[in-house]
Amino acid sequence: MLREVNQELVQAAERKLEVSLGTAVRKAKLSQTECDEIRGRIRFTDSMAEMADRDLVVEAVIESLPVKTEIFGQLGKIARPDALLATNTSSIPIMQVAAATERPERVVGLHFFNPAPVMPLVEIIACEVTSDETLRRAREFAADQLGKTTIRAKDRAGFVVNALLIPYLLSAIRMAEAGLASVEDIDQGMVGGCGHPMGPLALTDLIGLDTTMAVAESMYAETKERLYAPPALLMRKVEAGELGRKSGRGFFTYPKK
């Protein structure tokens, strides 16, 4: 069951799924029968009430604590008492989200990476009151049912991956801001010199400059470490609507689809 906030976005999600499955069939990664079976297992809605009978609900909205706590407040009243409530946050401490529910012991972090169908890793994060049963069920879901590689992380802003990744991305932005190298040469340096599949600025465009800034701000708010502070160049680009691939322009320019 996939819930979106209105029918327009529900229809967009359905179209996106159809395109994705159609591509998999054309590339012979799925048969038409498998495609039809997958499509038949997925339902779409714009009603939060449809979550009432779920075993597990995964929230994956924007990286905003007020938005997430509002949703978890609703889920705490709607979901079954034994349902797991998971957040896909990439940086916000899980305890801050769990505090919005009446059952914080059922709340856990399940952080998937973009694109989730392809990337093998899921970070599992327990807050101070997450129960052992919740952790066990969360790991069984991610590892046994989805076949993902799982790692455990402490409930600290950024967890494992972003605590290492975000300072790297921000350093590349500061280097471009200072004029020490062009954005093309910064990225080529990391691809050709370190064997990275993608340079840091292209990766920031893929993640979204607004998402990168929100994650950095969340980590800086908790740690006050300067290496997590968003550079001015990043803030100006977000203010200008240059958000990366999703807006067509970030550190690089992307052709319209």
Rank of each mutant, 00 (worst) to 15 (best):
T45D: 10
G208N: 07
G208P: 02
T89A: 08
C194G: 05
E18R: 13
A172V: 04
R249Y: 06
L165T: 12
E59Y: 03
L227A: 12
C194H: 14
I94P: 01
V107A: 07
S31Q: 11
P81N: 07
I207M: 13
S171W: 08
N6P: 12
K27Y: 07
D187I: 01
C35D: 07
L110F: 05
A60Y: 03
E63M: 05
L65W: 10
V97H: 00
A52F: 05
A216S: 12
A98H: 00
A143G: 06
D210H: 03
V25Y: 01
D210A: 01
V108G: 02
P200Y: 14
D46P: 05
R236Q: 15
L243A: 01
N114L: 01
T149M: 14
K27E: 15
L206N: 01
D210S: 06
Y254F: 06
G250T: 02
V238P: 00
G192C: 09
L165G: 10
T89Y: 01
D132Q: 12
D187C: 04
E133Y: 02
D185Y: 14
V107T: 08
D155V: 11
K27S: 14
T211H: 07
R156C: 09
P231T: 15
R41G: 10
K257R: 15
T69Y: 04
I125Y: 00
M190S: 07
K256T: 15
V97L: 12
C127N: 07
D205W: 01
G192Y: 11
T150G: 09
F251Y: 13
A153F: 13
V122W: 00
K257D: 13
Q32P: 04
K237Q: 15
L110P: 00
M95H: 11
G208E: 05
P167D: 14
L121D: 06
E133D: 15
E70G: 12
A178V: 12
M175I: 14
E177W: 02
A79N: 00
R174F: 10
R41C: 12
L9E: 06
C194Q: 14
L121R: 03
G248K: 04
T212C: 13
E177C: 07
N6M: 10
T150R: 05
L110M: 13
V122H: 01
D46R: 01
P230M: 09
E59R: 10
R174D: 03
L165A: 11
K256P: 01
E18M: 05
T204E: 05
F44Y: 06
R226C: 06
E70S: 13
T101E: 03
L164M: 14
N6T: 07
V215H: 00
P117V: 10
L84T: 00
G109I: 00
D205G: 02
G192E: 12
A157R: 06
K257T: 10
V19P: 01
Q11M: 11
F72I: 01
L135V: 06
P255V: 08
S47M: 13
E18D: 15
L206A: 09
A49H: 15
K256F: 04
S90H: 03
V122M: 02
A99N: 09
N6F: 14
Q32Y: 12
L135E: 09
I78N: 04
M190N: 09
K16W: 08
R245H: 12
E239T: 08
V57H: 04
Q96P: 05
K256Q: 15
N114R: 04
I92W: 04
Q7I: 12
H196A: 04
E50I: 05
R226E: 13
